[in-house]
C-alpha cells in the first residue's frame, strides 16, 4: 500500500496563500463563536411565538453549519465528484425527513400516534 511520491512532489500551497487561508479560518472561528452567543442570547429573550424561536435557532444553526462545511471542510471549492455524492445524499436526506413527516401530517384525524 505504499506509494512512491516524494516530498518534492508533495502538493503544497504557497505561504502567502496559506496565510490568507489562516485569516479566513480565524474569521470563521470568530463568526461561529458569535453565532453561538447569538443563539443563546436570543433564546433568553423568549419570543411569544414558538415557531419564531425555532426558526431563528435553526437559521443561525444553518449559517454556522454552512460556515464549517464551506470553509473548514473546503466545500466551497471541492471537486465535482464530491458534490455529486453529497447531492445524492441531500436528496435522500430530504426524502427521509420530509416524506416521513408528511406521512404523519397526513394521518386521518384523531389517529393516536404515540
Amino acid at each position: 500500500m505504499s506509494d512512491h511520491s516524494h516530498s518534492t512532489e508533495a502538493h503544497k500551497h504557497s505561504p502567502q496563500e496559506v496565510s490568507k487561508h489562516v485569516k479566513i479560518y480565524i474569521g470563521v472561528f470568530l463568526a461561529l463563536l458569535v453565532g453561538t452567543v447569538v443563539t443563546v442570547g436570543l433564546n433568553a429573550v423568549h419570543f411569544d411565538s414558538i415557531k419564531l424561536t425555532v426558526a431563528i435557532a435553526l437559521f443561525v444553526a444553518v449559517i454556522k453549519a454552512s460556515l464549517v462545511a464551506c470553509y473548514f471542510m473546503h466545500l466551497i471549492s471541492e471537486k465535482k465528484m464530491i458534490y455529486v455524492i453529497l447531492g445524492f445524499t441531500a436528496f435522500f436526506f430530504v426524502g427521509l425527513m420530509f416524506i416521513t413527516l408528511s406521512a404523519y401530517a397526513d394521518l386521518p384525524a384523531n389517529t393516536v400516534t404515540h
Partner: peptide
C-alpha cells in the same frame, strides 16, 4: 411506505 398501507396511513401519502 407501500409496505405500510395497512397502518392506516392517509390517502394523500
Amino acid at each position: 411506505a407501500h409496505h405500510m398501507y395497512l397502518t392506516g396511513m392517509g390517502t394523500k401519502i
